[in-house]
């Protein structure tokens, strides 16, 4: 009987999970068609940890998260053992009375100081350097970075590439045309002549990327989980973020900030390619039927 009492919680939990997993009448409807693109990366059925990391710098963030979780679990388990021990040892029962005198324990004080010191270490020793590394230390021109402008709108990502000249054309709202000129490129600016806009992000591996992120309408958030990158796209601001892909493959870009009813479908494909594949793609895009045609304007 007693065993049953202790097992009951576990049984109830298992029952809920089982019902959830094995409810035949409620089988999943077909997953929506997320285009024919095959996304790389192993996830498994019930994943419990972080997505694959295909960046050069992502391990900084991962390491910090790993250390934090080990610390959190240690603290919680140690603390929980004491908690459960107290509950069992000091339960009310005949012949047992509470002790009016308060313990003059030094241990909790030391423990609190230790926790505070460790937090300080996490902050100063780990978080701040990582933040400085991944947010502030933008690659210099010597690193030969790729420049891309990311322009978010409800509910799509536009990737504005400068073309071969490496220079972005001027943009202004008055040139905007939702069919032919989604970003409002100024046709009189020669820098914009070979600019092109893509709905997919193509990048070569082993070269740093500097993106300038902005939004046309509301706040979005540019998130590439496999790259450990996330940055809000705020209208009226142009925010620089860099990252450094190292592994080829096809991945996903997500919007992480509620941006309206179709927030959930604001997804873009990220293709990480070899330098030669990338060059071929740029060649194609720059000369091919560009997103806007000068004759039309």
């Amino acid at each position: 009987m007693k065993i049953l009492r202790w097992c009951a919680p576990v049984l109830v939990a298992l029952a809920i999970v089982w019902m959830a997993d094995a409810s035949p009448a409620l089988a999943q409807a077909d997953a929506p068609d997320i285009s024919d693109v095959q996304i790389d990366g192993e996830y498994g059925q019930f994943p419990t940890y972080m997505p694959p990391d295909v960046s050069k710098h992502g391990y900084h963030v991962d390491d910090l998260i790993n250390i934090l979780h080990v610390f959190m679990i240690l603290l919680f388990v140690g603390w929980g053992i004491f908690f459960v021990w107290c509950l069992m040892k000091f339960r009310a029962r005949p012949g047992h009375t509470a002790d009016y005198k308060l313990v003059k324990a030094k241990a909790p004080k030391y423990l609190e100081v230790a926790v505070a010191l460790f937090e300080a270490f996490l902050l100063v020793g780990l978080s701040m350097p990582v933040w400085a590394r991944v947010k502030d230390e933008l690659p210099t021109e010597a690193d030969n970075p790729i420049h891309v402008r990311v322009v978010a709108e409800q509910f799509a990502w536009n990737f504005h590439y400068p073309g071969k000249d490496g220079l972005f054309g001027r943009v202004a709202p008055e040139f905007l045309n939702s069919a032919t000129n989604v970003l409002g490129l100024d046709p009189s600016d020669p820098n914009g002549n070979d600019d092109f806009v893509s709905g997919e992000m193509h990048l070569p591996v082993d070269r740093p990327v500097i993106t300038q992120i902005t939004s046309k309408d509301v706040i979005h958030s540019f998130a590439i989980p496999v790259m450990r990158v996330k940055q809000d796209a705020v209208p009226g601001m142009r925010i620089s973020v860099w990252f450094h892909p190292v592994k080829t493959g096809t991945y996903e870009i997500a919007c992480a900030q509620l941006c309206g009813n179709n927030h959930y479908s604001m997804r873009a494909i990220l293709r990480l390619e070899s330098q030669s594949e990338y060059d071929a793609w740029v060649e194609e895009m720059a000369k091919g039927p560009a997103e806007f045609d000068e004759d039309d304007l």
Binding site: F71, S127, K230
Partner: peptide
């Protein structure tokens, strides 16, 4: 904790 530290908050 991981949310309060800016670096892990990125993810």
């Amino acid at each position: 904790l991981p949310l309060g530290l800016p670096a892990s908050d990125i993810a």
